[in-house]
Design a protein around this nucleic acid. Structure first.
Lengths: 234, 234
DNA sequence: CAGTGTGAAGTTGTTCACAGCA
DNA sequence: TGCTGTGAACAACTTCACACTG
């Protein structure tokens, strides 16, 4: 990843602070969210190509696999700092590493989930997030019937125990899968307990201090697009 | 929903084909996908307000709840054909009905799911899609160990049985939660079996005839955004 | 000559500004 | 005054065009 930096060492000495190269601008400037959203698809595909023994891949060919514009792929990859060779493309193994690094998929983030209902249960059951560097290690609820049980090996605790456990385990991510009426309250607690990022599935805006990251995900969004198309295609 | 059409009947007689009203243009013109994605959040919130006995709601107040620009909300609601009264807002009950109609959430879509792994299992477990008008009625796999079992009451059949069952039950939606290597193959089968819309969770572009709707959903996209922010906020 | 890299053009979606209304 | 409704300005993202490279 730093070959790149050394390549441009000479220029940097000439004109120090202003005018960094395009590549660097890309790396430090805000990366468009749509680009970040596409990156996991690149990564999954690359892992597959790698397991098939493919060494090189060009942006246009990635583009065909994913039905994306070829230059879009080139630009997206540039955001990560990757660079390829004309006529050949990118080195699959390098690209995988760069993407994992960029996305933070190679870290071990541990998460607590609050609200052990159907949605919470589904997220826990779906072990796939581990491949992306996040592991749900415990769930919390206030329903006495759920407390003490476990979901696919993940224990469900009383919400009151969150604080103590989160502090001891250095938990960074909190997942909210409660009804929206209690989402803000849970978020406040999470912030107080030192959580750094909140993944909120309740369809409500959550207010947090600016140093805490919030990602809202509305589970019905994709379904809405399909059903709406079905509705209007008749 | 058709009160609206009758309201404008007079104008329509005057200048028939060209120059429809703004409202109608909105309804027939392509509705931006981001707008459709926001609509389920409106709906969920409105249902909640309704259960609290609230009769009217204004766009600006919806906007505060969801942290969206107020005029965005007005425009989104206009796409559905809803209209409100200045100073008062929209009638909650009407808005719910209009949104459900527009999104197709008040229909009973039955879906078959292929690929009964963790992701497939999680989607089945999560019963919440029923609230949005979609019910997963059966799962299919080629793994003999899974065939014959059931997940939260949803039976897992041999993939070979899909065709017969899909035809008899008038299934409209097919969900693909297989590895991407078999996704295209499954999609081809689904198309041949009369499925009208495919919800694809494999990170690969699927080719289908133009009359079939495809919605690609990449499960890691949202997580990628969070982890990336975590990574770059340090 | 197939592919990277990048500025410019084009498109889409969002936010602003303001007219009209009760 | 607080709200709907809408055209216009603005910002973000995507696609195009093309110079450059091995």
């Amino acid at each position: 990843m730093n070959d790149f930096l050394t390549n441009f060492a000479v220029q940097k000495q000439k004109e120090m602070i202003p005018s960094v190269t395009e590549h660097e601008k890309r790396k430090s400037a805000a990366v468009p969210e749509p680009a970040i959203r596409r990156m996991p698809s690149y990564l999954t595909l690359l892992r597959e190509l790698s397991s098939e023994g493919q060494e090189y891949i060009s942006a246009p060919r990635l583009a065909v696999h994913l039905d994306i514009d070829p230059t879009q792929v080139v630009k997206d990859l540039a955001y990560t700092g990757a660079s390829g060779r004309p006529r050949v493309g990118y080195i699959v193994a390098d690209l995988i590493e760069i993407l994992e690094e960029f996305l933070g998929f190679n870290r071990k983030h541990e998460a607590f989930l609050v609200g052990a209902g159907y949605l919470g249960g589904a997220l826990i059951q779906y072990q796939g997030f581990r491949e992306a560097g996040m592991k749900i290690v415990a769930a919390f609820d206030i329903d006495k019937k759920k407390i003490g049980t476990d979901i696919s090996g993940v224990p469900v605790f009383d919400l009151a125990k969150f604080r103590d456990l989160a502090g001891r385990l250095h938990i960074t991510i909190g997942i909210i899968t409660t009804p929206s009426s209690s989402a803000q309250q849970i978020a406040d607690l999470m912030v107080g307990w030192g959580i750094k990022a909140i993944w909120n599935f309740a369809p409500i805006a959550i207010k947090v201090p600016s140093h805490v990251i919030v990602q809202n995900t509305h589970i019905y969004s994709n379904l809405a697009v399909i059903l709406n198309k079905l509705e209007h295609s008749r």
